[in-house]
Amino acid sequence: MRKAKLKVYRGTADAGEFKDYEVQVEEGMVVLDAIHAIQAKDSPDLAVRWNCKAAKCGSCSAEVNGMPSLMCKTRMDRFEEGEEIRVAPIKTFPIIKDLVTDVSWNYEVNKKIKGFSPAPDDKEWIIHQEDIDRVQEFRKCIECFLCQNVCHVLRDHDRKDAFMGPRFLVRTAGLEMHPKDTANRMQYLKDEGHIGMCNITKCCTEVCPEDIHITDNAIIPLKERVVDEFYDPLGKVIKKIMGTDKKGW
């Protein structure tokens, strides 16, 4: 059976290096299996986050040969015989140890978004499938934060102070497009979440393990809603004359 060569980052942000490991490759093995094999055999203290091993929890985010990906979904047979497999922690968040990073910033951002706000009523909700297809796509998100990691606004420009990031634009889109939601998050998106920082270069969409069309279906529609509110004086006038109600009901 063939062996694979892995280079795994060991250490903290200030002190660390890529260490070499060899792992027996079994059929259907993924990178996370290889990391577990290293843990069980060579280094029980190798730090890695994981839960489900089935791409449902979004815990095992890392960068494999430079590409942000879920280790549980990255098959070892993708690599050629003898190819070196380099496993690094995600870059955008501070390293705690080895492959584990401090993603707590994301949870802080989430708190600031105004939650689901339906109008109070006691009747059964009648909502049709076509009304929620869009929302359901966004709710597939498993919060792996790969989109946050790859987003250059956070990654290269380190604008965590200004930009909420793709994950939370997706969440906001899911709230805004919910047929029963009554809140308006446009001011927030423009002035605090800074949706304008996004230049729709689509890396978030490229790395999303759930295949959510983050840019086309969440961010751009939100940008257009922000335009409705702040950058389209003509449209505002027309809507006023026609008396169109955006929320529908």
């Binding site: 029980p44 203290d45 190798l46 730090a47 890695v48 705690i96 140890k97 080895d98 584990v100």
Partner: peptide
């Protein structure tokens, strides 16, 4: 028994 320190050490957790 485990080696290493207490910083995110799965072996110790186990």
């Amino acid at each position: 028994a485990v080696k290493g320190d207490k910083r995110f050490n799965p072996g110790w957790h186990l």
